[in-house]
Design a binder for these strands. Structure first.
Length: 216
DNA sequence: ACGAGGATGCTCT
DNA sequence: GAGCATCCTCGTG
């Protein structure tokens, strides 16, 4: 099955986020063991998006990029990994999108494990069922041994890449607002496979905020 | 079934 | 010093 090339990621971020659903994320460990999973949930982040890590990198007056800052690498080459630590505890993985110089990223939020499941359980101590292995962005990274060392590497070849799915694997895709954010909560930029049990249990942030308001 | 709270370190629209 | 693109555990029903 074909590996997605740089060209796939060199497109509008929302299209990439949508089209990644159903594809297979593949990780080859140092010992050669292969892990894979079907992508069932993604989120898009663009340079015109206040929730984007690179939001402050682009100077809106001059159009120039600041040289420093965490989100700088989101303006780099499409098809590279953007891996960062959140809450001081969990690694999260994005795929860089859009041509070099334009900011964009797709957060991989959940996969349905396919290969290397026993290996995933070794790193996911609290997982009781396959569903718990990678149904969230932090869990996914842990199951697939994705951390700082893979930041900024190309994801068009081992040890990390995405491949086409088999014929007939074209799941339905639904959208919602994104999960776990406080800015631009109304952007409907989360993509997921409806009724798939491997999708994360998170509640979209627009709903979370509406509930909060209702309680006051 | 929820909901609350803690962990833990990096970044700073 | 606050705020995280989160996850886990331990309460109460």
């Amino acid at each position: 099955m074909r590996i997605l090339t740089e060209k796939f990621y060199d497109r509008p971020t929302l299209e990439v986020a949508h089209d990644l659903i159903g594809k297979h994320l593949v990780r080859v460990l140092d010992d050669g063991a292969k892990l894979s999973g079907r992508i069932v949930e993604t989120e898009a982040y663009t340079q015109d998006d206040p929730a984007f890590h690179g939001w402050g990198i682009l100077d809106r007056e001059t159009g120039l990029l600041k040289p420093e800052g965490r989100g700088r690498d989101l303006f780099g080459k499409p098809g590279t990994a953007y891996v960062y630590l959140t809450y001081g505890v969990h690694w999260l993985m994005n795929v860089v999108t859009e041509r070099e110089g334009i900011g964009g990223g797709v957060l991989l939020r959940a996969v349905e494990p396919l290969e290397g499941i026993a290996s995933m359980y070794e790193r996911r101590a609290s997982a009781r069922k396959d569903i718990d292995l990678a149904n969230g962005p932090g869990k996914l990274a842990q199951a697939f041994a994705i951390a700082e060392a893979l930041h900024n590497i190309s994801i068009t070849k081992p040890p990390l890449y995405v491949r086409e799915a088999g014929a007939g694997e074209h799941p339905a895709v639904e959208t919602s607002c994104r999960i776990g954010i406080t800015r631009a909560v109304e952007f409907p930029w989360r993509f997921y496979v409806p009724d798939n049990p491997y999708v994360s249990r998170g509640v979209p942030s627009d709903i979370v905020q509406a509930r909060k308001r209702g309680r006051v």
